[in-house]
């Protein structure tokens, strides 16, 4: 029997963007408040999983033609690269720098290299979660 999931599909199309926006908010909130790359990445994967539930793997893969295993590699390189940057300046491994910079639209903004590391974490978490879920889903 073909199930009728029009409501689920329509809602999730909207809810997907709300979740993604919230994930991005969480990611940047991690700068000074609870949040960060890990939880942001989980939230983003949550949004993708919602799409997987509402549609199917093929449709979602068409929308997001990403190899999530490659995403793990990119994320790892971001994270390691940020940490290893310390080697160039001969300061202890993982030492971060930060400062307040004036940006045209945002105004006075505090920037921190930890954000780049967190971006790596964010990508790795999405990569790993989606790889696991797709692997489990595919075998059915």
């Amino acid at each position: 029997m073909k199930t009728n999931d029009v409501i689920l599909q329509t809602t999730s199309k909207v809810v997907f963007f709300i979740i993604i926006l919230f994930a991005i908010h969480l990611f940047f909130a991690g700068h000074y408040h609870p949040g960060g790359g890990f939880v942001g990445g989980l939230m983003t994967s949550g949004a993708l999983v919602l799409l997987l539930l509402a549609f199917d793997i093929k449709t979602v893969a068409k929308g997001f033609p990403i190899d999530y295993k490659i995403l793990i590699g990119i994320g790892l390189l971001f994270a390691i690269g940020t940490a290893a940057g310390a080697l160039v300046f001969n300061v202890p491994f993982f030492t971060h720098v930060f400062g307040d910079v004036y940006l045209p639209i945002f105004g006075e903004t505090s920037l921190h290299t930890a954000m780049l590391f967190d971006l790596g974490v964010y990508l790795v978490v999405i990569g790993v979660t989606m790889t696991i879920i797709q692997t489990i889903g595919e075998s059915e």
């Binding site: 590699g73 390189l77 390691i80 290893a84 080697l87 202890p92 491994f93």
Partner: peptide, 21 residues
């Protein structure tokens, strides 16, 4: 080079990340 002892960890880690591609 004060980070010398990190290298035996860092080299395989970077390699592993690159090999994923």
């Amino acid at each position: 080079m004060i980070n010398l002892l990190v290298l035996p960890l860092l080299i395989p880690l970077v390699t592993a990340a690159l090999l994923i591609f």
